[in-house]
């Protein structure tokens, strides 16, 4: 559940400075989200394909991830063409399909998938810790970085606690059924999960305070910008400018 399956690769993209990747993904997302030109989206798609090839990741793994998020988007895409006011192109009883609604839905679908894939390819190929470090270097407020980091850490803690409890329950021959007893057991599980995780986070925090934690995250390993990183960030800037011109002309 909380592994970082894409983080431990060794490809061109994996070895890039995470700061460049964060900045690039950020500007890419802004441009793609605000454009209404299909040609810009086409160029964005072309870019995503190139990055995908460079990451050497498995197509199926990526698609599986995208599919999960798309279950939410698809709902919107189905409803929107029938609920958006505009020129009617097809009527099915009380339901009317509008041209504007159709295009609106299409754009939302394309944009969200492009941004999503770009972020997965560029950012999930870094470990959460280097991401937090990189955000620090980009002068993102320390509180926000801590929030991101601790959310990840504590989700881990809660998940492991959950696994432990589940094992304990299974060892005593619990089989879930549709009855009050099962619901009650699950309620106990969730309650003890919350209490235990809370206690544990309290102890982790105390341990940090004992080692002089005062709210900021000192960064141990600095990133080094290599010539390759510099050249690539230049190329990326040119591409983004080109995309921006196409998108906002």
């Amino acid at each position: 559940m909380l592994q970082e399956p894409f983080a431990n690769g060794n490809s061109f993209i994996h070895n890039l400075d995470p700061r460049i990747r964060i900045l690039f993904a950020f500007f890419f997302a802004i441009i793609v989200a605000t454009t209404w030109h299909l040609s810009a989206l086409l160029w964005a798609f072309f870019f995503v394909v190139v990055v995908f090839v460079l990451t050497k990741l498995n197509m199926r793994d990526i698609l599986k991830r995208i599919l999960v998020v798309n279950t939410f988007i698809v709902l919107l895409v189905i409803i929107l063409p029938f609920s958006y006011p505009g020129q009617v192109i097809y009527a099915l009883g009380p339901l009317t399909l509008t041209k504007q609604g159709f295009f609106y839905a299409l754009y939302i679908f394309l944009k969200s998938n492009l941004i999503l894939t770009c972020v997965i390819l560029l950012l999930s190929t870094t470990s959460i810790f280097s991401l937090a470090h990189a955000l620090h270097h980009l002068h993102v407020p320390s509180k926000l970085v801590q929030l991101i980091f601790f959310t990840f850490r504590y989700i881990h803690v809660i998940y492991r606690q959950y696994q432990k409890l589940m094992r304990a329950v299974k060892l005593r021959c619990f089989t879930p059924k549709t009855n009050i007893y099962t619901y009650k057991t699950y309620a106990y599980l969730v309650a003890s999960l919350l209490i235990k995780s809370y206690d544990r986070s309290e102890r982790v925090y105390k341990a940090m305070v004992c080692r002089g934690f005062q709210g900021t995250f000192p960064v141990f390993r600095h990133f080094k910008m290599t010539t390759k990183d510099r050249l690539l960030s230049m190329a990326a800037t040119i591409y983004l400018l080109f995309l921006a011109i196409l998108a906002w002309k």
Binding site: A207, M208, Q214, P218, F220
Partner: peptide
């Protein structure tokens, strides 16, 4: 005064050993 907790899992929170050990000195 260094305080070692009963459960080391409560104490270790960094992904790598080096970062874990560096945490205290960097805070200082």
């Amino acid at each position: 005064i260094g305080f070692m907790f009963q459960d080391p899992d409560d104490q270790l929170f960094c992904p790598t050993v080096a970062e874990e050990i560096a945490f205290g000195p960097l805070n200082l």
